[in-house]
Design a protein around this nucleic acid. Structure first.
Lengths: 204, 204
DNA sequence: GACGTAATCATTAAAAAAGATGATTTTTTA
DNA sequence: TAAAAAATCATCTTTTTTAATGATTACGTC
């Protein structure tokens, strides 16, 4: 039986590249592509692919959110995360929200086929490069708590401690505590570095 | 006479997508692709394509630097910038360094062909979306001066005013002045927002 | 139900950044 | 070369952040 594939990516060159790579595989059935989350969801109301290749960055919502939604609506569907970024935070987030695997956009045809064949069986697939990135003993960015992340986002928006404390209904010293934890966990020494690093990691 | 095309992009899916899009165009001659700046330069020692499609983000050096180098070595070569990002700062930078046009990775086949046919004649090409982005009266990010940019980078690295003043051999008040200009030009109210915005714009 | 972590708040002090104004000297550029 | 823009420095004030310590409460997990 054929494996049906659907791709969600806003870059036409990428979807076309994938189509071109996979078109001669007799085991695969190309169902088309969507360029945003909304049209992906519409498509899924009418069709049911076996595997979705899903970009992490979409114009209307993040691939991570879309992944979550799709997985709730169609739990049996296998989702493969797709991105140019090889970053623990993003990858982990994607996997936590239901993706079964993760491949980079510089993956070879062989990697892509292996990924598809792996997730279709319900197993987890990471490409080689992703694995080696995951192994790196990166700082503790992933360990930041819910509250710390809220504070981080507000800092990035330019709010001062006083403003944050108002917005979150907590005291200024508390905001300060979170702020200090963030500096520690990110291993940086001030706000500028914090935002820089968080930005690089795609957290803001 | 055929137009020979060469692509520099580290994402295999993208180069494959472009190849697939262009393969049936009789007027074009596909010369292959490189996945990094170094192999692009090696290739150019042996061959001379008419047009290069060049990604802005390469693993070994930025497309902007590569663009500059290639243009110095082979002035007659037409370079088309290629990126997922539609940002004035990057686009302007690329064009200033010798690119003749700029297309996004979600460009259609028609756009791509038009871009190639335009730059081969020595004319400038912007895709529709790029043009509309350029028209937007974005802040004054592009107008930051050399010195301001230096200061910006050091701020992003986490240096304090005192440290920056030492590094650049200027007084602390001067650093402060630059810092304040940066806040103004970026239309932000503190360091956190500054770094966030600069990061989004790909300046750091 | 004990334990660890997260989240909360407090106090005090030092360091750094931001805001306001003004002024001089280079550099660029029209 | 004259005007405009950039880079430099100064003073002073206010706001904000960072640091150092300590402590209580809430919550989920084993």
């Amino acid at each position: 039986m054929k494996i049906s594939i659907f791709v969600v990516d806003d870059h036409y060159m990428v979807t076309e590249g994938i189509r071109s790579l996979l078109q001669n595989e007799k085991i695969l059935d190309w169902m088309g592509h969507a360029t945003n989350a909304a049209s992906c969801l519409s498509f899924l109301k009418l069709h049911e692919p076996d595997v979705i290749l899903m970009d992490v960055n979409l114009p209307d919502k993040s691939g991570i959110d879309l992944c979550k939604e799709v997985k709730q609506l169609y739990p049996s569907l296998a989702i493969l995360g797709l991105s140019t970024f090889n970053q623990q935070a993003i990858i982990k987030n994607m996997m936590d929200n239901g993706a079964l695997g993760y491949v980079l956009k510089n993956a070879t045809k062989e990697e892509l086929l292996e990924a598809i064949n792996t997730v279709i069986k319900g197993k987890v697939y990471y490409s080689f490069e992703v694995l080696s990135a995951m192994r790196k003993p990166e700082p503790n960015q992933l360990l930041i708590t819910r509250r710390e992340k809220e504070v981080l986002l507000l800092i990035a928006e330019g709010l001062t401690n006083a403003e944050i404390s108002e917005k979150l209904f907590i005291s200024i010293p508390t905001v300060n505590t979170h702020r200090k934890s963030l500096l520690e966990k990110f291993e940086v020494k001030n706000t500028a570095m914090l935002i820089g690093k968080a930005s690089k990691l795609g957290l803001i």
